[in-house]
C-alpha cells in the first residue's frame, strides 16, 4: 500500500462519521427542525453500540443497538419539541449534555475492556468484505452506507413526492398544514431518521474508527456535523464535500505534525475547526447574507385545533 493510499484511507475513515451524521441532520433541518442534540445522540450511539457489541460478541448487533440508541434519544427531543412545542435550541442543547452524561454511565463498565476487544471487534466488520474491501482500499460497510445515504437522500429530497412534502414542511409549516399534510408526523420521522444516522455515526467511532470506548470520544464531531449542514447550504452533495474537507484537513495536519512541521501541535489540531469557520464565513459573505436555510427552521409548529 502506498503512502498516498494510506492517507486516502485514513481520510475516508475520518470523514465517514461526519458525513453520516451530517446527512441525517440535513434531513431533519430540511423538515424545519433544528436538533442541536447531535453530539448527545452520537455519543449515545457510540456507547450503546460498543456495549452491545461486547455483550453479544457481534458488531452488527452493536450497530443496531447504536441506531436504536440514537433514535431513542431523538424521540426524547421529538416529544419535547413536537409534542410540547418546547424551544428547539434549548431542548437540543439539553439533549447533548444529557447524552454525554448518560453515555459515560453506560460505557463505564467497558472502559477497561478495550485492549482485548479491539482485535476481536475489528474482525467481523472489516473481514466481511475482504474482496471488495481490498479492491476499494479496504473500506468497511459504513463507508458504502454513507455513500448510499448521500445518493438516497438526494434522490428522496429532489425526486420524490414525500421528499417534496418534507421540504415543504421546512419552508412553511403553516402552508403545508393548510394543504392537509401532517406536519408533526413528517417532522417526527425526520427527527427519528436524524437520530438513527447520529447513532450509526457514533457506532462507527466506537466499533471501527477507534475500536474501544472512552467517555467523550465523539470530541465535538456532532457539532461539526451541524456546521457541515450550514456549510453545505442544506444540499446533500455539498454535505459530502464538507465532511471530506473537514476529515481531510484533520488527517493532513496529523501527517504534517508527523513530518515535523514547526507549528505547535495544538494549533495544528485546531486547524480543521478554523478552516470550517473560515469556509462558513466565506460562503455566507459570498451569498451576500442571503439565507438558503429552510424558512421555518427552528420554529415550533402548533396546529390550531
Amino acid at each position: 500500500m502506498t503512502m498516498f493510499e494510506a492517507i486516502l484511507l485514513t481520510i475516508i475513515t475520518a470523514s465517514t462519521p461526519l458525513l453520516i451524521a451530517a446527512i441525517g441532520q440535513l434531513v431533519v433541518e430540511r423538515s424545519g427542525v433544528l436538533n442541536l442534540g447531535m453530539e448527545g445522540m452520537m455519543i449515545m450511539g457510540a456507547a450503546c453500540g460498543f456495549a452491545a457489541a461486547i455483550l453479544s460478541g457481534n458488531s452488527y448487533i452493536g450497530v443496531l443497538a447504536a441506531i436504536a440508541a440514537g433514535m431513542g434519544m431523538s424521540m426524547i427531543f421529538a416529544v419535547l419539541t413536537l409534542g410540547l412545542a418546547a424551544n428547539q435550541v434549548a431542548s437540543g442543547l439539553a439533549l447533548s449534555i444529557f447524552g454525554l452524561g448518560l453515555s459515560g454511565v453506560i460505557g463505564a463498565p467497558f472502559v477497561g475492556a478495550r485492549r482485548d476487544t479491539m482485535a476481536r471487534l475489528d474482525l467481523p466488520v472489516l473481514s466481511d468484505l475482504p474482496v471488495i474491501g481490498k479492491a476499494l482500499f479496504g473500506q468497511d460497510p459504513f463507508v458504502y452506507a454513507s455513500f448510499a445515504l448521500v445518493i438516497g437522500v438526494w434522490w428522496f429530497l429532489t425526486r420524490t413526492k414525500p421528499g417534496l412534502i418534507l421540504r415543504a414542511c421546512g419552508e412553511s409549516h403553516a402552508s403545508a398544514h393548510a394543504l392537509g399534510y401532517p406536519v408533526l408526523k413528517i417532522r417526527l420521522f425526520a427527527i427519528l431518521f436524524g437520530g438513527a444516522c447520529a447513532g450509526l455515526a457514533g457506532a462507527y467511532l466506537s466499533l471501527v474508527y477507534t475500536p474501544f470506548w472512552s467517555p467523550g470520544m465523539t470530541a465535538g464531531r456532532g457539532w461539526i456535523a451541524l456546521a457541515i449542514v450550514v456549510f453545505a447550504s442544506w444540499l446533500p452533495w455539498r454535505a459530502m464535500a464538507g465532511a471530506y474537507l473537514f476529515g481531510g484537513i484533520t488527517i493532513l495536519q496529523l501527517h504534517a505534525q508527523g513530518a515535523g512541521v514547526k507549528i505547535p501541535s495544538q494549533a495544528m489540531a485546531a486547524l480543521p475547526y478554523l478552516v470550517t469557520i473560515i469556509a462558513l464565513v466565506i460562503i455566507m459573505s459570498r451569498r451576500g447574507g442571503q439565507q438558503s436555510a429552510p424558512a421555518s427552521l427552528g420554529v415550533p409548529f402548533v396546529p390550531d385545533r
Binding site: I165, A168, S175, A176
Partner: peptide
C-alpha cells in the same frame, strides 16, 4: 398557502 422557495410546479404538485 404557497412555499416561497419552491417552484410553481412543485407548489402545484404539493
Amino acid at each position: 398557502s404557497l412555499f416561497e422557495a419552491l417552484t410553481v410546479a412543485e407548489n402545484v404538485a404539493l
